[in-house]
Design a protein around this nucleic acid. Structure first.
Lengths: 261, 261
DNA sequence: AAAAACAGTTTCAAATAATGAAACTTAGTT
DNA sequence: AACTAAGTTTCATTATTTGAAACTGTTTTT
């Protein structure tokens, strides 16, 4: 499912180990890593040692487990400031969140997955940091579909092939054919919906953030609970959402946020 | 000043390049990197290529610059959840921030530098994410001195040797001797002060977060502006601060947050 | 317009570091 | 005490990294 090392030598392999540890979403033992690893025991062992030395992993001697290291949060600070849309988009999504009183999300795509780079919800403003960096699937979220719909054909093919099509809820799209049909609709209308496809009771309206040349850099969405509003209620914010996405796109271009085209 | 690769082979070198890029605090050209690099041109070139392939760096073709890549924010999400004090400390520092109405900071030490892992200020709650992962010097911040004061002798020596002793303000301690004297005082009193040593007009009171075995895991501080309060006003919050630090220490132990002892 | 300077990229043989089967050392069971 | 599983080390083999030098393309100077 996840892969990234076509032929990037030792460094690529070591980074793959980092991904593996991250995927566990909890501190993990060496033997657990070994089971899911393409590398033989001593090789994996040395990678883990090196990464720990380097502060990319941290080792808990009591529990004998490895977790992601603090050095990453230092490095990511810089990433967040310079390579993500978040810094540029922050004021825009704050305004939008205040305006509609719902959770506003901002995402980029990272290797086929929707990467949340910022979140803004007026009622619980302390959740932000815990959310940034979180990943969600591309095929069953508003943000993901909005991004996928506006990629170039080759990128889209590649990204679609990375999707797992796990049926999270009854409304989840479960095949690349269904997804492609939906993406065509989205490309025409300019807006994507999440109709409880990822989580029961959560719906959202999302739209792509693009540069003036039309290259996709990310997506914004407004999410809400079905207990409060329906999809059609969210329609109300459509113009505001589109306007925000456009403004972010323009600013991102000026600030030269890297896109993937 | 920064170093981390004793002998960690190719992977260590590649990660050193990442650090280099991060240090620039802005998108950087290959040639700029080369000037500050211990590696010969083709070697550095290949590292940068590999890291870009891997999404650890991102390349802007228009400006021909490299910046930290989005993959880092994904990886750091996991780091923040599992290796940092932040998750455990969050409720405690929120309470403290509400109580005193000033900015509360949480830090760990990363290679001799104070690494902000969380920040909580009631009046501008959207600054959090932008702050997490930021680094500050250890010798001239309340948080840094609180951590340094309670390290083992060997660690302290190593950490002190990493300090630059740049005189940010007239009150900055500018030699290891002065710093060591101050650290002794702090070790006795259990509290560290920043008397406008890093930034003119900003003072803080900080105290260490330790496990029951006495090993240091981080520090909490309350910071304020001299235009509103003086150091002696902050004294008022000393008991609350100490209590919060103790509680975080206890919880961190239960949750097995990795320490550096 | 030619020449020079510069930034970025490729080549290739030598040097070095990574590899993994097997052996070994612990720590935890039966 | 014997057994088992997890973690660590060894070492000859193999594959990757290395960097001087050469090359290409772009910009600046003459």
């Amino acid at each position: 499912m996840l892969e990234a090392q076509k032929s990037d030598g030792t460094v690529g392999k070591a980074l793959h180990v980092l991904d593996q540890v991250a995927e566990f979403c909890r501190p993990v033992r060496f033997s657990e890593l070994l089971e899911n690893s393409p590398f033989p025991k001593p090789t994996l062992y040395r990678f883990v040692q090196t990464l720990t030395n380097q502060g990319m992993l941290s080792y808990d001697p009591d529990r004998q487990t490895y977790a992601m290291g603090v050095r990453l949060v230092r490095l990511a600070h810089s990433a967040w400031r310079h390579s993500s849309l978040a810094r540029v988009a922050r004021p825009h999504i704050e305004t939008l969140a205040t305006q509609c009183g719902e959770a506003v999300h901002l995402a980029q795509l990272d290797n086929g997955h929707v990467l949340f780079v910022d979140k803004c919800k007026i009622s619980d403003h302390f959740d932000t940091l815990a959310q940034a960096g979180k990943i969600a699937p591309g095929y069953c979220t508003g943000l993901g579909k909005a991004i996928l719909a506006f990629m170039s054909f080759e990128q889209q093919q590649r990204a679609i092939s990375h999707q797992s099509f796990v049926p999270y809820t009854p409304s989840t799209l479960t095949s690349s054919e269904e997804l492609k049909r939906e993406l065509n609709t989205i490309r025409e209308s300019g807006v994507a919906y999440d109709r409880e496809e990822h989580e029961q009771g959560i719906v959202s309206i999302a739209c792509p953030i693009r540069t003036s040349q039309g290259s996709i850099v990310g997506a914004v969405s407004i999410a809400t609970s079905t207990r409060r509003y329906s999809i059609s209620d969210l329609e109300e914010y459509r113009p505001a959402l589109l306007a925000v996405a456009e403004n972010i796109g323009i600013e991102a271009e000026v600030w030269q946020v890297p896109s993937w085209n």
